[in-house]
Write a protein that binds this DNA or RNA. Structure first.
Length: 299
DNA sequence: CTATCGGTCT
DNA sequence: AGACCGATAG
């Protein structure tokens, strides 16, 4: 009787939800000849920043993070993600929806302000929106941050489980996506534990200069990260509905099914994603943020 | 070092 | 027009 009516379709869009620990930042130039231009930055859990798809791709490939697909990162600025760096959300008071102060609104540029990541006034879920707004302070590698990341990760996982529950079976594909994230998380943990962290551009450059030759992360793989996984493990067990591998995984059962390490040929990795998405509600992946705007004309 | 802008290439 | 990378300023 379980219909696959995925009505609560606000699942995690492959483009919107990126691997755990990753942060996407979109900045708009406010001055200069190129004012108005949009720049997108991707910050990896290790604290490395990428400003271009190419760089990120290289990093993912060289870093051995084959679990992460460059396709998951949306570099294309939709001219709507203009998320002006609102001076970091101070822990002061959380302005719960409602009006903002009418006075002092001298923002000549696109008054667009909020419009942060997808945050549709839908059902629950998405509560992580406010979570990922902490990006600030420049430094992105403090214990505090890690904490946030953890929370986020957990949330993601929860979402995954939820999906399984809703669909029951036939979600294998979707699950796959979640699994990917999960696997990625594992890697994340590993790297997070003992990563150069502050590789800096030097590392990037080095990587780039040395297309191949050895995996810099091959040696890092001895300590067990179960400590961190512990809290999340139970969650997964909650619903043993569909889970084949990863169950009897002892230490290194991370046998990623697809290891597309091939480079240069980037044309079918996209299809993969598309194929994953069910045909429900076409590609409504775009964050439909409160569209009823032009319908409610004041007059 | 980080953040932003400039300018070029596709 | 969009993306990428470089360079400079704070």
């Amino acid at each position: 009787m379980n219909h696959q009516s995925l009505k609560e379709g606000d699942i995690l869009c492959p483009s919107s939800a990126l691997p755990p620990g990753w942060i996407r930042e979109v900045r708009q130039r406010k001055a200069g000849k190129t004012a108005g231009k949009l720049d997108v930055y991707f910050t990896s859990p290790e604290g490395q920043r990428f400003r271009s798809r190419a760089s990120l791709r290289t990093f993912l490939l060289e870093s051995g993070s084959g679990n992460l697909d460059i396709s998951l990162f949306e570099f294309t600025t939709s001219k709507d993600d203009v998320v002006t760096p609102s001076q970091a959300p101070p822990p002061k008071v959380k302005q719960r929806r409602g009006k903002k102060k009418p006075s002092e609104g001298q923002q000549e540029e696109t008054e667009n302000e909020t419009a942060i990541l997808e945050a549709p006034p839908n059902k629950s879920k998405q509560a992580s929106s406010s979570l990922r707004s902490d990006t600030k302070s420049g430094k992105v590698r403090t214990a505090d941050d890690t904490n946030h990341i953890d929370a986020d990760t957990k949330l993601q996982k929860t979402a995954c489980v939820l999906e399984v529950n809703v669909n029951g079976d036939k979600t294998t594909e979707t699950l796959n996506g979640c699994l990917q994230a999960l696997t990625a998380e594992k890697v994340d943990n590993v790297q997070l534990q003992k990563s150069p962290q502050r590789g800096g551009q030097l590392r990037e450059k080095l990587l780039r200069l040395a297309p191949l030759s050895n995996q810099p992360n091959t040696s890092i793989l001895q300590e067990d990260k179960k400590a961190d996984l512990k809290p999340s493990a139970p969650i997964l067990n909650v619903e043993p509905a569909a889970e084949s591998e990863k169950k009897g995984d002892e230490s290194k059962g991370d046998n990623t099914p697809n290891s597309d390490l091939e480079t240069g040929d980037d044309s079918r990795q996209d299809a993969e994603e598309h194929a994953l998405l069910p045909d429900t509600t076409d590609g409504s992946c775009t964050p439909v943020r409160e569209s009823q705007n032009s319908k409610n004309e004041p007059h």
